[in-house]
Design a protein around this nucleic acid. Sequence first.
DNA 1: TTGTAAGCGTTATCAC
DNA 2: GTGATAACGCTTACAA
Lengths: 354, 354
Amino acid sequence: MRSAKQVFPYLSPMDHKRATIRDIASALKLSPSTVSKALRDHPNIGIVTRERVKKLAKELHYVPNQTAIRFKQQKSYTLGIVIPNMLDHFYVAAVEGFEKFAYDHGYQVLIGQSHESLQREKELLLTMQSNRVDGLVIAISRETTDTSHINEVVYSGIPVVYFIRKPINEELHCVCSDVYTGAVDAISYFVSRGHKRIGFINASSYWTTSRDRFLGYRDGLIQHGIPFDKSLVQESDFSQESNYQAIRRLMQLDDPATAVLTFKDQVMLDALNCLRFEFASIAPAVELIGYGANPMIQYLEHPPLASLKEQPYEIGQKSGLLLLDLVNHPQTEYAPQLVKFPCNLHVFTSHKQR
Amino acid sequence: MRSAKQVFPYLSPMDHKRATIRDIASALKLSPSTVSKALRDHPNIGIVTRERVKKLAKELHYVPNQTAIRFKQQKSYTLGIVIPNMLDHFYVAAVEGFEKFAYDHGYQVLIGQSHESLQREKELLLTMQSNRVDGLVIAISRETTDTSHINEVVYSGIPVVYFIRKPINEELHCVCSDVYTGAVDAISYFVSRGHKRIGFINASSYWTTSRDRFLGYRDGLIQHGIPFDKSLVQESDFSQESNYQAIRRLMQLDDPATAVLTFKDQVMLDALNCLRFEFASIAPAVELIGYGANPMIQYLEHPPLASLKEQPYEIGQKSGLLLLDLVNHPQTEYAPQLVKFPCNLHVFTSHKQR
DNA sequence: TTGTAAGCGTTATCAC
DNA sequence: GTGATAACGCTTACAA
């Protein structure tokens, strides 16, 4: 067994050229094509030759050169995934689902983070094209109101699937959460607990995921005969300051909110802290519901009322499935699908026990 | 502006072949080499030609084919990073630092997650080699007690840098946290608050990062004249059940711990919950310190005493720097460096105010 | 069952 | 200032 000591200083490619199919071929007095076939168990290579080839390949530490294969095959066996941020568990879970699916089908994954910047998103898409990814899924950035850069990718022959966030009026496959129904359920639950002043902290954007949350909020109220009040709807950009501002406004109304639905758990957590620090007297009476069912909530002594549990892993997987289907059937016309995964209201234990 | 509608069904490569340097060359009645040089602002191409080329390139939506460039240059312009897990903020932050450095130097990043499996780690390294990454940083999995697969990579000419976790007795560059000093500081702080029964929940492993925490814990005690007591040291595999078990054992001793240092914040959070649910009477008196300064702690009403704030982003950056140096100077002999970033004790506000 | 040769897109070298 | 040619490692018709 070679130890680290022995390999110092590590051998540069000059000292130790990586073995190629040619090297194996000439050593064995075979042709490169025979070696190539033997290594891949091609049926019309004799068993003896095949074994000889494999044995030597192992001895020479032959590792197939993917960069050459990709180039030759005009296929990168790589799928791209563009997300806003890896610090958000939700996106990480989605990436995991996507990655698992991709790996299981022989594809690699190139991850890009837009950090909510349109500029960065455009650069990422160029990189993806330049790397000739075979397909791409994307959760658009907050700044993405124009999608010409995405259409450019589609036009260049790379299939694209939206996931989690989709621009309004764009028609490509999309996999996301059924946030509408989730919002309706949340409102119903609030109403069942006697709330009438129900606030909503949304994200300002071009995404359907914001619009649908809003529609669910509004329809939920209407279904229970509660008039819609514009002043109960606030927007946040997810920064702590912005989250604090939004909850403050809802608390400082003449008739303040007694319950608040938030765009996601991170917003809810900040709201919870703001209530605790700045509105201590009324804080315990204010009930909150977010989206995401962040596992960290289990560590809170006074958890929020509930959270809408989404299925990011499954969303990632399903996006991968739709994408690979497009990759493998490039010329087929298709009707863009909109796949929605349910958001289930997850009520935290301490509230259930009341 | 092309709209999504117009591109439906999306054009397959057959309908719309991607432009190559050859296409541009023949359209302009130039040679491919001239076009290639023009696109890269090579000095001995006339300004007129250059502009003509660039104009047409834009019109044809020419995007350089990285797969061809990589192949031609025998360089992938890709760096690999292998981590156990992306669900851990700490590693995500490290990846971010590494990625930023890599991108700024014209490299892409291929991320691999071992999920603490040696088998998976080996597969990842093969993939990395197969993709001819120009270099690799790795935080080894929990199961990695033998490093021959890593030496194999080094031997094949790909420089490797360890980060965060390093096997004992392996000599390559390594960038990690100064967990030893962190542990000593934590113990000193515990002692200054009157603790004498100080427990420690460590990770069982072959990593220096476990050994160093332990040595810091032990030396910290010794420095304050507190005898080392083996029963105060427990091990955990980071699962919730394992974390609960570990803290339970420390609480059920004849002379229980009154303070506990944990391998990382996740362990501390579970310990906190376990204390709250199962040892409510003594819980408030037990003080905890973890590693990581997880931002979620700010949402706890009764936060732990403190956390050792590490610098994962900087660790990622520095690993990138050392790695690129190796990539760019392949034949230089080098003495393996061990770079340590400080762990600073971060005391949570509610305790400061006591 | 094995061998030959062409070609994927780009760039480096050298010639003009 | 521009062009011709070879080469990177591999796969795949097609030929033997």
